[in-house]
Design a protein around this nucleic acid. Structure first.
Length: 225
DNA sequence: GCCCAGGTGGGTA
DNA sequence: TACCCACATGGG
């Protein structure tokens, strides 16, 4: 099967199995950026806990920017990696202020997609995944965030070459899926990765996509024996 | 107590 | 430039 056809088949089969994902609660681009940085290398529960703690402790992003760094770190501690995330968030808030004169990222909506992506990834702590999340979920821009679930699952489904690394997978998958499918594919692939296609405990017996899965076909003997 | 989740950037070959 | 690893927490 041609790659683009395969991608479309995955999209459609996920829709049949999971349906159209609910739209996530919309955040402002700046809220989404901070929230996504907090989410790096942790789960949604811990991210939300840290984000709410930050909002409770500081009335505005200006207050976070100007706060004592130790206090910011202590506030977001539950998210993990707080000694990195805290200073990086503050540095980003300071840089945005310096570049824009205010703490507001709504202007990114008016930039060409590529330019908005480059603008976000100029900051230390904002990689391809974080930038793509802000673009897709807050700015309605066509970006395809590749997290470890998506990286793993797309490998197994033969949607990318096995040796392709995450940096390469990002533009590859972005080009592979039609823009209008990004939102649903992203959320449904993550759901598949979380619920079924785990790295160490693949539950292939209940996976709805085993007929498209390279991993399954390679290990079928092990699965059926 | 141990295993696991899960992005980014800096260091090293 | 391509890999390897530090970074830290909390839930099961």
């Amino acid at each position: 099967m041609e790659l683009a056809q395969r991608a479309l088949a995955v999209y459609q089969r996920l829709l049949i199995h999971y349906g159209h994902p609910q739209w996530r609660k919309r955040l402002s681009p700046l809220d989404e950026l901070v929230s996504t940085i907090l989410s790096q290398n942790t789960n949604d529960t811990l991210r939300d806990r840290a984000f709410e703690a930050l909002r409770r402790r500081f009335p505005t992003w200006e207050a976070v920017r100007d706060a004592d760094t130790a206090e910011v770190i202590a506030t977001i501690q539950t998210a993990g990696l707080a000694h990195r995330k805290g200073p990086r968030i503050q540095a980003i808030l300071r840089q945005i202020t310096a570049l824009r004169g205010e703490l507001n990222l709504d202007f990114l909506r008016e930039l060409p997609d590529e330019e908005a992506y480059r603008w976000l990834t100029q900051f230390k702590g904002v990689g391809p995944k974080t930038a793509a999340i802000v673009l897709l979920f807050s700015l309605d821009k066509p970006a395809f965030p590749v997290d470890t679930h998506i990286y793993r699952v797309t490998g197994r489904l033969g949607l990318r070459a096995p040796q392709m690394n995450v940096e390469q997978a990002h533009p590859h998958l972005t080009a592979l899926f039609p823009k209008e499918t990004y939102y649903a594919v992203h959320l449904n692939l993550i759901r598949l990765g979380r619920e079924i296609c785990q790295a160490r405990t693949p539950r292939c017996s209940i996976c709805p996509l085993t007929d498209l899965c390279d991993y399954y076909s390679k290990t079928q003997q092990a699965h059926t024996s």
